[in-house]
């Protein structure tokens, strides 16, 4: 049984300009110990899907559908129910390590709080465990860091503190939302290594949300590609990269500049702009930008169809391997 099973999830935000459909009919499952990569551009719904799973939607947001964590539905669950899961069995690493740590609390106290709250640990005990966790994520001079404030640490160290905090209660699922986007490449490599290590040694399931296909290629076992609040393609990491079957996935791969690519000149692009979520195009949301679009695509929405071992796509066109 998957540890996290999202079924037909919709997330809507009520705004002054009308309703925004951020997530539309998304179904996803995360198996124990696997790393699921979620790829998409801004506004594709990749973050909001999992914010809903963590019960962290903004006040004007509403989720419906099912989010089954270890069999129990979290949609519409009480705050108390969320609190037993959140930060304990399922935790989250955010993009910006500065704004997600409390600025006026020492690192040690922020870490200890998690254990005191969820595990009823004593303060002394919590400090010992926090220290061990900081060492595990390779923070140098860990003991001294416990008594520092977040602003005294570099971005890379802050992100390690976030990871340590997420790991304290040995969660079954870690949701990493763009964990390395704010970091320099050399520091990004260090953080990705730690996440890899966590996944391998602790067998924690990791949901890796990112716009960087390179990051997904290195870590994920399976990949889901999202566009305009829907999943357009799912598959194992190898086949998504070597044999993309949705025009959007194909386009994304083609327009990503690669370090190992010596070509110059005009780059492949995806024409047009991502759609406005208040006024989604009819039919397939991608059709105004798709070079394969036919009349049917404007009238009818393709369903996410399974067509092979663990692979599915939402497209009428039968794209064959290149």
């Amino acid at each position: 049984m998957p540890i996290l099973d999202i079924r037909n999830l919709n997330v809507r935000f009520a705004t002054q300009d009308g309703e925004v459909s951020a997530v539309n009919d998304v179904s996803l499952s995360v198996e124990k110990g696997e790393c699921l990569g979620i790829v998409g551009e801004s506004g594709s719904g990749k973050s909001q899907t999992f914010m809903a799973a963590m019960g962290l939607l903004a006040a004007n947001g509403r989720a419906n559908g099912e989010i089954l964590f270890d069999g129990a539905n979290l949609v519409g669950a009480s705050e108390d129910a969320f609190n037993t899961v959140r930060g304990n069995r399922m935790s989250m690493i955010f993009q910006d390590p500065m704004t997600s740590l409390t600025p006026h609390m020492k690192i040690g106290r922020q870490l200890a709080e998690v254990l005191v709250h969820h595990r009823g640990a004593s303060v002394v005990e919590a400090r010992i465990q926090s220290l061990a966790m900081l060492k595990r994520v390779q923070i140098p001079e860990a003991e001294r860091r416990l008594d520092m404030y977040p602003h005294e640490l570099s971005g890379g160290l802050r992100q390690r503190v976030m990871i340590a905090m997420a790991l304290l209660c040995s969660p079954e699922v870690i949701i990493a939302d763009e964990p390395t986007t704010a970091l320099d490449v050399t520091v990004q490599a260090q953080i990705l290594d730690i996440i890899h290590d966590v996944k391998e040694r602790l067998k924690t399931a990791v949901v890796l949300i990112t716009h960087d296909l390179g990051v997904v290629a290195g870590l994920a076992d399976r990949v889901a590609v999202m566009y305009a609040g829907r999943i357009v393609e799912v598959g194992d990491v190898g086949s998504i990269f070597s044999d993309p079957r949705h025009p959007y996935t194909k386009g994304l791969l083609a327009c990503t500049p690669r370090l190992d690519d010596a070509r110059q000149g005009i780059m492949t692009t995806i024409q047009g702009q991502p759609p406005n979520l208040q006024r989604l195009p009819s039919g397939c949301s991608f059709h105004p930008r798709c070079s394969y679009a036919a009349e049917r695509c404007a009238n009818e929405r393709p369903a996410l169809e399974i067509y092979g071992q663990g692979r599915a796509r939402a497209c009428f066109k039968d794209l064959k391997a290149a």
Partner: peptide
């Protein structure tokens, strides 16, 4: 720097020797 840049190709990216530079 170049070794640290992730390449969008699972085979290449996983075969690559990681890290790398320590510290900031």
């Amino acid at each position: 720097l170049m070794a640290a840049v992730p390449i969008p190709d699972p085979d290449k990216e996983r075969a690559k020797k990681r890290v790398i530079l320590t510290g900031d």
